[in-house]
Design a protein around this nucleic acid. Structure first.
Lengths: 156, 156
DNA sequence: TCCCAAATAATAATTATTATCATTTAGGAT
DNA sequence: ATCCTAAATGATAATAATTATTATTTGGGA
């Protein structure tokens, strides 16, 4: 079950209560969490844990490919337990991230990419929007009056 | 030619020298520039222009969809003149951005997305790597010794 | 030319994240 | 079981990127 214990200790990293807690939180979440959200949940369990430790370990876990990072436009980076290579639909309101069971880096797209001569390191396909629930909430709220600001959402 | 003058004044925004210069810089660049890079070039032309003005106007231009924003992992946001909807291969070293003449949001991918019930606002497909030139430079440089840190590049 | 909302310059403030460093601790060696 | 040391941590300072504030200036219509 706790395969992550092996992944860490196999590479010489120590099993600390802090890491245990951070991974537990990620494991219990069905959303992508920001470092701050993780920090808050960590502090609920053990208030003495520092936010710096949260950042440090998130970076380590990303490096070890045990956690993946999602860089949402207009907002801090979010994290989730790494479950293989996949892409997401991310709710801009609540952060819910639904896995998309398909990768665009294939077929025609892949061929065109190969032609460019780039040395490809990674790719990211993110779909931003509102999940059904947040979409409904939005309809009802009067905060969307309009005017110059728009929705704050930029669409490339 | 200066269709952007109309785009701005049509919506009640003023044509200021600052905006003229920022757009000119974006227009003359074949790369995605960071706000700081734009700020530097702006100051070369007219040193009295403030970086805050650069940020303010970039945000405005993004909002008006005249400029698009590219959020590279591990690095500040980059900007380019908006030339319709497209995706890029971005060099993590020099920032060069090669347009990819194809969009993954179609066919099977689109179908699957539609099934999720998300209200989709936007999507981003970014391919990160090294352009041919930077890729070669990298080979030669000794900075890549290795050790724990790796390349700093995370690959989801 | 006059006027004023819009824009600007300068700078303070904020947000997200990383670096520093003194202290603690996990876990292998004894 | 105890000792030891590199690794990890907590606290906090520092940094980077960006946004907010505010007094001043200005584009462009009346």
């Amino acid at each position: 079950m706790s395969t992550w214990v092996e992944k860490l200790s196999a590479r010489g990293y120590k099993i600390t209560p802090q890491r245990r807690i951070i991974l537990e939180i990620l494991d219990n979440s069905d959303r992508h969490l920001t470092a701050e959200e993780i920090g808050l949940q960590v502090k609920e369990i053990e208030p003495s844990i520092s936010l710096a430790t949260v950042y440090r370990n998130l970076n380590l876990l990303v490096e070890l490919q045990m956690v993946s990072r999602l860089n949402i436009h207009d907002g801090p980076v979010r994290y989730e337990l790494h479950g293989g290579h996949n892409h997401h639909l991310v709710c801009m309101n609540c952060g819910a991230a639904v896995k998309l069971g398909v990768c665009p880096m294939q077929g025609e797209v892949k061929r065109i990419v190969d032609e460019t001569g780039f040395e490809v390191s990674s790719h990211h396909f993110e779909i931003l929007g509102y999940c059904r629930e947040c979409s409904l909430k939005k309809e009802l709220s009067p905060t969307s009056a309009g005017a110059k600001g728009g929705t704050g959402v930029d669409q490339e």
